[in-house]
């Protein structure tokens, strides 16, 4: 069975709605939820997720909102926090570890904290029984892949192409996937540009997919009511889960 990881931006359009969407995703076959921490300068993200980040902040999102919402979500689905490094650094990794344990969150995905800079934090996070997800990009050499994935836990986030989230690009990943698999048994999930149309293709040879912009697009769609958004997001999740396993 291949897994589906879903990303949603926390606090957009509202915190209550984030909890409702998260629970609906849990019931639609999503295996792991990435709760996005809105950040003022999300450089790895494309226009869709960036817009959701900025709107959430304009609506008054604060980190304690993430902690509160997570406590309601994490008992129902494997939950990770996905956010840029500055809030972690500013509040202190210890604070995030404590809050994650309290809420039942299982780890962090930090896209601007590469392997070298992650080292001192990774050991602390793992000592607390949490995970820090490692990234592999299609630009990485085999030597670098070996270095990164040797100690990778939970899953490896394979970036599908050189670019930002939500771009309609694709690169042949078969070689890089087989490189990763020579060094580790940790599952490989592919993210960036995965939606209903590309999921089947992108899931080839890997253990799961990560979908973000496709869900956030629905969150941003002002022509839909909240109920319609939940219905649509659940349908997309079910469709993707089916396609990657067909």
């Amino acid at each position: 069975m291949k897994n589906l990881v879903a990303y949603i931006t926390t606090g957009f359009p509202s915190l209550e709605f984030t909890v409702d969407v998260a629970l609906a995703l849990a019931e639609s076959g999503v295996d792991t939820l990435e709760l996005g921490m809105p950040f003022s300068d999300p450089v790895a993200d494309g226009p869709v997720i960036e817009a959701a980040n900025l709107k959430a902040l304009q609506n008054g999102f604060k980190l304690h909102h993430l902690f509160e919402a997570s406590a309601k979500i994490a008992p129902h689905i494997d939950t990770l926090w996905m956010g840029y490094f500055n809030p972690f650094y500013h509040k202190g990794m210890d604070t995030f570890i404590t809050e994650a344990k309290k809420a039942g969150v299982n780890g962090f995905i930090i896209p601007d904290l590469p392997f070298e800079e992650a080292k001192p934090y990774k050991s602390v996070i793992e000592a607390a029984g949490l995970n820090l997800i490692d990234f592999i990009a299609p630009t990485d050499s085999k030597a670098r892949i070996e270095q990164i994935v040797t100690d990778a836990k939970k899953f490896i986030y394979l970036v599908a192409y050189a670019g930002i989230t939500g771009a309609g690009k694709s690169e042949d990943l078969q070689e890089i996937v087989s490189d990763i698999k020579t060094f580790t048994d940790t599952p490989v999930y592919v993210g960036f540009g995965v939606d209903q149309n590309t999921a089947k293709e992108k899931a080839k040879g890997v253990d799961g997919v990560i979908v973000g912009s496709a869900f956030v697009k629905v969150l941003l769609d002002e022509s839909l009511s909240n109920t319609q958004k939940i219905t649509k997001i659940s349908a997309i999740a079910k469709e993707i889960k089916e396609k990657i396993n067909s």
């Binding site: 601007d112 590469p114 392997f115 800079e117 990234f135 990009a137 630009t139 990485d140 670098r144 970036v159």
Partner: peptide, 20 residues
């Protein structure tokens, strides 16, 4: 070698850019 001036500096970028 990693670009640290004391605790400052470094390379905090998406993995895709690290090889570049």
């Amino acid at each position: 070698e990693l670009g640290h001036f004391g605790k400052f500096g470094g390379r905090f970028v998406p993995e895709t850019l690290m090889p570049a």
